[in-house]
């Protein structure tokens, strides 16, 4: 069928509303099929891809990131697929042959100046989607704001170009971040010079470290293993080097680590919330800067 014939068919269809052809042979029907296919592709990508791309998530707040990405992608897929389906179809069906090299325009299209109900429907659907997004975001965000009693306190200090982590009550200040498993943690984040970004990517939490300000963020690490803290706010010359390893360990390992860093056994046991007797401090001298404890390797 030449384009002119196709075009006439479309024209007829518009003018002769009475005996419209079956749905799936009309442009709307064909676009619907393409839309279904595109939506399916989008949903499949949205559901399966983030899991493979994200680093191994180590906490509930980290899983929130994953869930949000999946949920939003699935919601957005039909909208994106609709635009793509229509654009795709328009190129197949409504583009006269050789129109790209012609100096003469194709015949005028139908003079549609708008469609009130369609516009209202479009705005209505997007409003609905926005509300869903907002409710999701508010729910997740408020669940992350809950403070837990007995949370482990960690004072995080950013400076050009190093993070230091202080464990109050133990006298330990380290440049690596060790966290006990399944214990809520509160990070009190500040900076000494310029703004840095304290970002635990596997735990899905981030906040800036601002000089003279203290910002609290919370999470509960659930999965043992190592991670890397990377400064996420450009902070000058050696910003790229401002990162360090950290790891989530068992409470007993955590207590032992505190002791190896110079804490007394009782303070370490208290901070790690384990019985003092369970700690088996190694003979490591506190003055030795042992090779960095990287915890479980990533």
């Amino acid at each position: 069928m030449s384009f002119e014939q196709q075009f006439d068919a479309i024209e007829n269809e518009i003018t002769e509303e009475g005996d419209a052809p079956p749905f799936f042979s009309r442009p709307g029907g064909k676009i619907f099929i393409i839309w279904l296919v595109f939506t399916a592709i989008g949903v499949v990508i949205g559901v399966f891809a983030p899991h493979h791309l994200l680093p191994g998530l180590q906490s509930g707040t980290g899983s929130d990131v994953w869930a949000t990405i999946v949920f939003f992608t699935v919601l957005a897929a039909p909208v994106a697929a609709f635009v793509y389906a229509l654009a795709f179809y328009s190129l197949l069906a409504w583009r006269p042959k050789k129109s790209g090299s012609s100096d003469e325009p194709p015949p005028d299209g139908p003079p549609q100046r708008g469609n009130g109900p369609l516009t209202i429907l479009w705005v209505g659907i997007s409003t609905l989607l926005v509300i869903v997004l907002l409710v999701w975001g508010m729910t997740v965000w408020s669940s992350q704001q809950v403070a837990h009693d007995g949370a482990l306190q960690v004072n995080v200090t950013g400076q050009q170009w190093l993070w230091t982590y202080e464990y109050p009550g133990t006298g330990v200040t380290s440049r690596t971040l060790e966290l006990p498993q399944d214990r809520p943690v509160e990070f009190n984040v500040t900076a000494l010079d310029v703004i840095h970004g304290f970002w635990l990517d596997t735990m899905g939490i981030q906040t800036d470290a601002n000089p003279n300000e203290n910002t609290v963020i919370r999470t509960t690490p659930t999965t043992l293993g190592g991670f890397v803290v990377r400064c996420s706010q450009l902070c000058g010359l050696n910003h790229a080097f401002m990162n360090n390893k950290g790891s989530v360990v068992t409470p007993t390992q955590f207590g032992n680590w505190l002791v190896s860093q110079g804490a007394t056994t009782s303070a370490a046991a208290k901070s790690a919330d384990v019985p003092e007797s369970s700690l088996t401090p190694s003979s490591t001298s506190t003055t030795t800067a042992a090779p960095m404890n990287t915890g479980a390797s990533q």
Partner: peptide
């Protein structure tokens, strides 16, 4: 979060205008 997500409503209308204009047109490529 609310205001930011609200902006996607008028942005969506821009898409509607563009694809609505293409709809059943004769595409001069």
């Amino acid at each position: 979060m609310l205001t930011t997500e609200l902006i996607s409503i008028p942005t969506g209308v821009i898409f509607l205008v563009l694809i609505g204009t293409i709809w059943k047109g004769s595409i001069w490529a």
